[in-house]
Design a protein around this nucleic acid. Sequence first.
DNA 1: GTCTATACGATGATAGAC
DNA 2: GTCTATCATCGTATAGAC
Lengths: 195, 195
Amino acid sequence: MARSSAQARERLIEGTRQLLWDRGYVGTSPTAILERSGVGQGSMYHHFDGKPALVLAAEERSAELMQAQIREVFTAEMSATEKISTYLLRERDVLRGCSVGRLTSDPEVMANDALRTPVRQTFAVLHGYLVEAIIEGCASGEFDPGLDAHEVASTVAAVIQGGYALARAEQSAEPFDQAISGAIALLRASSPLRG
Amino acid sequence: MARSSAQARERLIEGTRQLLWDRGYVGTSPTAILERSGVGQGSMYHHFDGKPALVLAAEERSAELMQAQIREVFTAEMSATEKISTYLLRERDVLRGCSVGRLTSDPEVMANDALRTPVRQTFAVLHGYLVEAIIEGCASGEFDPGLDAHEVASTVAAVIQGGYALARAEQSAEPFDQAISGAIALLRASSPLRG
DNA sequence: GTCTATACGATGATAGAC
DNA sequence: GTCTATCATCGTATAGAC
């Protein structure tokens, strides 16, 4: 594979990824992709069959990046509370939201199994690590041992995604930060060992 | 105002509302609105200045309906736990999501103060009732009195919106239901009176 | 591999008849 | 108030030269 080829492909994927993140599937036009990527039309249709193929590649890139960030936090040596808090409090561009979660609002993406897969898998990875951490925290007395780990894992993941929605409605990161703080407070308050 | 006029206006608003709910701002075309509403093009541009005006009317309708549902639950005579649980567990078309929250994914809507207002206000109404209920529950011993009501209110609202995202990714209501159950369990587990 | 030219339907709106 | 005709622009893609 020639060097310039790989570069154009790469630029197309990254440009599409950024546009998808902000504007979703319908809101992202080939023309806009070309402008942002700085490549020509012929180049785009040489590297990709069409918009869906390019979008899939961009989604897979976002999914990889997100999953790497998740893994980095949850495979560190920390207590359950620390792992969850670290993930919840990690730096984020709150008003921009989640590059993967954003896609759940696109009917075209959700209606297509191939396009939906990277989203589903990324949420599954996060869910798995959260379940593990919650089971660990329940065993150590950090959380109420009566909690259902799968339920609480879904709750925590939902708080993140929903927090972005609240923040955008206010055009402020504050509702997101509040929602996260509240979730951490609730987890802590569930501990049978709490003061 | 003539009867047929009010009907066409009404059908346009409702048609736009339904399309917005499922497909968002960019995904909703005038043509699609006309088809769904069963009115002609001339009629549409007679009643509304253009797409943004029609969208605003549709958003305001969704906001009214949502706020009425919220009010109905939170002004009933129930304990704090019951009010919150009733709202969280009320019947929903989970895979369709929230007609108001959906709009937070539309950059065109969020970038325009007028179009963003119905969303902001609806979230504010929910937040207000949740804060009230949580303060009440903290006072009655249903919840941990050390909780920050504003934080937990944001958490609860975020769980709903985020639950829809998780559900769509799986094309199943289960993650939503889990997230809700987990949130209720965490609130209960925070009670200083718990067994 | 990348470019330019070309095509065609959809989008969002206006004009004027009725 | 509603209808049909018309319009400029955009979205998505193909063709063929280089």
